[in-house]
Amino acid sequence: MPPAKPSKDTAEIATSPTDYSYAELTADSATDAVTLADECALAISYNGINHAVMMVSPSFVEDFIAGFSLSNALIDSIDEIYDIQLDRKGDALNAQVTLSNRAFWALKEQRRQLAGTSGCGLCGIEALDQALPALKPLPTSPLPPAEHLFELRQRISEQQQLARSSGALHAALLVDTQGAISLCREDIGRHNALDKLIGALHNNAADKQHGFAVITSRCSLELIQKAIRAGIHTLVSLSAPTALSVQWAQRHNLNLIHLPHHSPPRVFSPAPTRVPSR
């Protein structure tokens, strides 16, 4: 059977960029719109067996699957991928990958050894309902005062002690009701940094409703889900959120604010009620 050829791809699978409205966290609350990156949950099955689910940008998905399969030693050669069928439904993208018999046998053996020797299971989540779970919406909560975000980037840099000495570290922080940074946790992994902060919030009985959390990393869906589960009412990101992150934040009453380098804070959730100014 010949190797898989690029299909209609991903141009048809991916959604077109969409403009999302935001309101500036300023006295006049000016509104505008910006295009946000798209993401979706990708479920990969090999020869009919679920392997993993991960969040991806829904473009050049076949290239990703090929690279993922090679870099994770699931195949030895790209020729062992016979076919890739993609099907998108809402926020989920299913990939049915057909492997050669040799590659599929090796994959099954790898799965058996991983489960038997480490007990950790496979990397990733094997069910879409775990990647896109039903979450309980948060109670609505007021936005933080704009002055609490004043020079926040500089103040965060001063708090990141590990990053100052070594670099390459994400941070998750808590800004308290007085506008002061009261907790800072750092990690090479952006998910890890937020998990550390969530643990510290509970260990220190911090006020998650009236203070707000800040992440220095990009704001993707997994971090939105973590914040909602942890009962954090406001999340501020130094990087722009993805489109799916905004949708989930609005759906679950999580206040979501992007803090650009040289512009006023942008409130994406709750959804702006005024028509964009441009």
Score class of each variant (00 low, 15 high):
F68M: 12
F64W: 00
L70P: 00
G121P: 06
V97H: 03
R111L: 10
A73H: 13
L132R: 04
A103W: 04
R102W: 03
A115R: 05
S71G: 00
Q96W: 01
C120H: 09
F68R: 05
L128Q: 08
P133D: 09
S71Y: 14
I81S: 02
A106G: 00
L93W: 10
E80D: 15
L138Q: 09
P137N: 10
L99V: 08
A106C: 07
S118C: 04
N94F: 07
L70Y: 09
L107K: 03
I65H: 08
T98C: 14
D83L: 01
Q85A: 07
G121D: 10
A95C: 13
L132W: 06
Q130D: 14
T140S: 05
I65A: 07
L135M: 10
A92H: 04
R112W: 09
L132Y: 03
L114N: 03
K89V: 12
W105L: 11
I81H: 07
G124I: 03
E109F: 06
G119H: 11
R111K: 08
N94R: 15
A92I: 13
N94L: 00
Q85P: 05
A66Y: 04
L138A: 05
G119W: 11
S100V: 04
A73R: 11
S118F: 14
F68H: 13
L74W: 08
A131C: 13
Q130A: 10
R88T: 03
E109D: 07
L122N: 05
E109T: 07
G119L: 06
G119T: 04
C120D: 06
S69G: 01
C123D: 00
Q96D: 11
F104W: 11
L86P: 00
D87S: 02
T140H: 15
A106L: 11
D129E: 15
R102I: 15
D83F: 07
I75V: 14
L99Q: 09
W105F: 11
A103M: 09
R88N: 03
L107W: 15
G90Y: 12
R88I: 04
Y82P: 04
S118T: 11
P139W: 00
I75E: 01
A131I: 02
A131F: 02
D76C: 11
Q130N: 12
D129L: 15
A106Y: 04
D87N: 12
I78P: 10
